[in-house]
Design a protein around this nucleic acid. Structure first.
Lengths: 162, 162
DNA sequence: CTCGTTGCAAAGGATTTGCACAAGT
DNA sequence: ACTTGTGCAAATCCTTTGCAACGAG
């Protein structure tokens, strides 16, 4: 799963956005359900969405009295969608992983102090990726990378009051 | 300066191995206990140690009938030791974080397929770190970075039997 | 109709927390 | 003695699973 595709264990290449969801599912003998579609929509709408955040959004959209997919369904569908190459997930640290639509590959930058998340250009790691490929034969999967550190605001705050 | 570490929230800079553990603790009003020492020793002995692995090792060292620190004590001490700058932890993916002695900064490279872990030169990220500092004012903490991808063995295995 | 899917409830694994007691300094 | 540290058990958090009912194709 490098950023040039390698498909993981039973995985899929990056999704071609042009191919309708239903078709991709059917090709695998899977079905298109409203829950499945809504989970995918939620991931696309929310940036850096945790399974829990996806759940709340769906509950919110459903409104009171409305019905949203069960938590277990959210998890099961995230797994399916990821196998289809439609979403990616990244572990930003402890706690829940964050999912995002696969269309725009980007790497995550997380502030350890305030928890803020920023996105960055995957090309940033091209140099490192090349050296790892050359030295270890290791293919970096840029879509899953998270870099920890300290954001500007927290860094400044830290130096003010030592 | 790209790969200099920034202590975490209220954290400490990299530990000077020369300063005895007791002294470092005392400077903070903390105490040296046998459990604390054994947890640190275990982290140093095991590479890429999960809290659970640390626990088993201590139980093993204690032998049958012997007494090892409780799991919660292991967790609490890892936290303390990390605040003191004596150990670092990295999240390699889902599941448990891995701890390692802080003396030798290195970044982790994890194969998503087989789970194997390799270490790499932190300098690999210097380029990316510089650009992030310039573009976002973000300071990367190389000690916490994990890069996911596919190792040579898994990559070859994948292309053999498609 | 025939399976893949879902909801619900219950199981699980990994941390974390509340407390009374034990132990550094 | 004065506090920090520890063990134990219970509580949490995040996910996963077993199953009977449901619904897409």
């Amino acid at each position: 799963m490098a950023h040039e595709h390698s498909g993981g264990p039973g995985g899929e290449l990056r999704a071609d956005p042009a191919v309708p969801l239903a078709e991709r599912l059917h090709a695998r003998g899977l079905r298109l359900t409203s829950q499945r579609r809504s989970v995918l929509d939620a991931v696309a709408a929310l940036e850096h969405a945790t399974p829990e955040a996806i759940g709340s959004r769906l509950r919110e959209l459903a409104g009171p009295g409305g019905t949203a997919p069960d938590t277990s369904t959210v998890y099961r569908n995230l797994e399916v969608l990821e196998r289809l190459g439609l979403v990616w997930h990244t572990h930003l640290g402890k706690g829940a992983p964050v999912y995002h639509a696969a269309e725009h590959p980007h790497l995550h930058v997380v502030c350890q102090t305030c928890g803020s998340i920023a996105s960055a250009d995957p090309a940033l790691l091209d140099g490192a990726a090349e050296r790892l490929a050359a030295d270890l034969g290791f293919t970096v999967d840029v879509g899953h990378v998270a870099l920890s550190g300290t954001c500007r605001a927290c860094r400044e705050r830290a130096s003010e009051t030592p």
